[in-house]
Design a protein around this nucleic acid. Structure first.
Lengths: 128, 128
DNA sequence: ACAGCTGTATACTGTAGGCATACAGTATAC
DNA sequence: GTATACTGTATGCCTACAGTATACAGCTGT
């Protein structure tokens, strides 16, 4: 499944979203390309230690976002996808979430230096 | 309450956490200083359009993190707080969450340039 | 002491996450 | 063609948790 995904059952963020998030990273970063087949829901489920319906929900979520094509009897495939035009106010929502995350890191005692480094590394990665 | 907070009831992230997250930003960034009084749970609740018990839960969450002092009959106050030493592996968890968030931004059609700018601005803000 | 604020505790209701199980479409071998 | 073994789908159930209502209890001014 293109890199091991760790699911934290204790996390407040549901497993379904954790799976979708992890796969979305692979998709956005191009490690999963259009036409690629995803592992079956049952295969992925045993790998992750979850029920296959949970994986199926994650797949449906990604399908709703246009990332993958689902058809009944055959494997899920990565779809071609043109990015939707950015909604202007979406940015402010994300900015809030980013700031909240950074504040949480600071609250956890991670140094400013370290946080800034992580952010800059991310920014570089995005542009490349 | 130190800046208007918008609560999105449709969001999958619960209102309690949204409140705590927003307040934690204010606390980390120093706009709420030790000794300051927070608005009462009922006051804040009407401002946010929620039940005061929801706000109380958020306060308890922050109290558990050491940010504020709660005592029965009197207003919640911002506490002095020494940051705990960072747990080393906490960073990798946050890195995952950051990457997931960035991927979601890209998936929403926000340009790489814009995302990088947001991240760099954040990094600068953290260091200052 | 009393009135009016404060946060606390308990019970209730609705909803959503995850799982079990039965179903239905597709592809491949024969 | 049809059997078979794979795919994803649909329904129902159980549990946990978010949000609310309502009653309680501790401070602090007058």
């Amino acid at each position: 499944m293109a890199g091991r995904i760790r699911i934290d059952l204790d996390s407040p963020v549901p497993a379904t979203r954790q799976i979708a998030d992890a796969l979305r990273v692979e998709l956005v970063e191009g490690r999963l390309k259009p036409g690629d087949e995803l592992p079956s829901v049952r295969r992925a489920a045993v790998d992750l230690g979850l029920h296959f319906n949970t994986v199926a929900d994650a797949y449906r979520l990604l399908a709703a976002e246009g990332w993958i094509d689902l058809k009944h009897g055959r494997s899920a495939r990565v779809a071609e996808r043109k990015a939707p035009p950015a909604s202007r106010d979406a940015v402010v929502g994300y900015r809030q979430r980013l700031r909240a995350l950074v504040s949480q890191m600071r609250a956890d005692g991670i140094s400013s230096r370290r946080i800034a480094d992580e952010l800059e590394a991310l920014a570089k990665g995005v542009l490349s």
